[in-house]
Nucleic acid binder design. Structure first.
Lengths: 216, 216
DNA sequence: TTGTAATAGTGTTCAAATGACACTAATATA
DNA sequence: TATATTAGTGTCATTTGAACACTATTACAA
């Protein structure tokens, strides 16, 4: 097995796995020798970039079949003091755990952290999270990307809460519903969500679940 | 000097240098062994990604001090049949040559090509140009990026023509002027552009020339 | 010198989209 | 049966966007 030579930077991926948990936007971190950081690692010699990100996410967090999008490539020569590393960064969107367990896997090798009050992260991972967060917030406004954070069935109140959490500001309930229904990207299932102690809400589902489309 | 080993992909940049020439959007190509392709090449072991792109653009085309933005990282394992190459792609915006010469440099090592009817390019460079073109068109709508294609002083008709060429559709003259002036990112210099044979136009300049700002 | 060709410059009106705003409905539980 | 809690619904005013035509200024030709 060959080791990196001095003639080439090492190429890695770093993945920012986002999920809405409780009332916050959180990131899933992976334990590393130097502290907490983003999941990711070296890209195989003949491995596709997207495939590498997907593989590392599964290996390190157990998460599969999630939305994944290339974010930016970080390559400041001093971003890793030890050796030259260039990271192709991705972000992943993990649906809200609708039922059952929400711990993805891997005992104490991973942890969730709030994006707003993040713990110190290794290298420039804090910056990568910040860039990813900005991109996510921007895309909320002109795409259907928020649906990738939702479970298969969800209520309009839940969808609105997701928008409010990411944008960091309250939205008008009637205007939100008007807009989101006019887009014609979700449909009512006919079922009701019953939680207890209040009026049950209609459940909706995405018309084209896998796709992220530009809107307006 | 070390050569690439089998354990790491080779990291390169590819730059899509856009300019408005005549009535078309064009790209500057560099002659390569296998045909015409984008300027670019290997990134130095301790070289910053942006710096590498900038260096290669100067070396291969003579263009310096242009707007440069990271586009996307292309890494399909089969994109180069010879060896594994991962390319961090950039696009550059070159101001319309206001006066004097517009040939950037480097005799027959470079050539301009229309983006609409592009010649066959090496590897996946055709795809990279297409992605860059889409990004440029998208950014026209929500940023001041078009100003990076303008000379220091320009007329509103010229600015409108740039938009029309990139968007591929005619724009209403009065609405265009209303919008662009309301943004408050350019100012009249007080000078007039005189070309001959017609009414001279007012010259404008960017208020913050280097900056690309998000609008509306 | 006058006429012509060419481009610069300028407002209004209508339609559509956006944003603000408050009450009734349905359920679980005390 | 009363109460607490969340779901669900429409209108109006303002802002924004789109369509639209004529006059002004110059160079050059007749």
């Amino acid at each position: 097995m060959n080791l990196p030579t001095a003639s080439l930077p090492t190429l890695t991926t770093d993945i920012v796995p986002f999920a809405i948990r409780g009332e916050r936007l959180e990131v899933l971190l992976a334990r590393q020798a130097a502290g907490w950081g983003l999941p990711g690692g070296p890209i195989g010699v003949d491995e596709d970039l997207d495939a590498a990100a997907r593989r590392q996410l599964v290996e390190q967090t157990g998460l599969s079949d999630v939305y994944l999008e290339q974010l930016y490539t970080f390559g400041r020569p001093d971003r890793d003091p030890a050796r030259r590393m260039v990271a192709v960064a991705y972000f992943a969107l993990i649906p809200i755990a609708s039922g059952s367990t929400d711990a993805p896997a891997a005992g104490d090798a991973v942890r969730w952290a709030a994006v707003n009050e993040p713990p110190p992260l290794v290298l420039d991972h804090g910056e990568i999270v910040a860039v990813a967060r900005r991109r996510l917030a921007a895309k909320l406004l002109y795409s259907t990307i928020a649906l990738q954070l939702m479970p298969e069935r969800f209520t309009l109140s839940e969808l609105q809460a997701v928008h409010e959490i990411i944008l960091g500001e309250p939205l008008d309930k009637r205007n939100f519903r008007k807009r989101v229904l006019a887009l014609d990207r979700i449909e009512a299932t006919g079922e009701l969500a019953r939680h207890g102690g209040r009026r049950p809400a209609r459940l909706y589902r995405a018309l084209r679940p896998g796709q992220v489309e530009l809107i307006k």
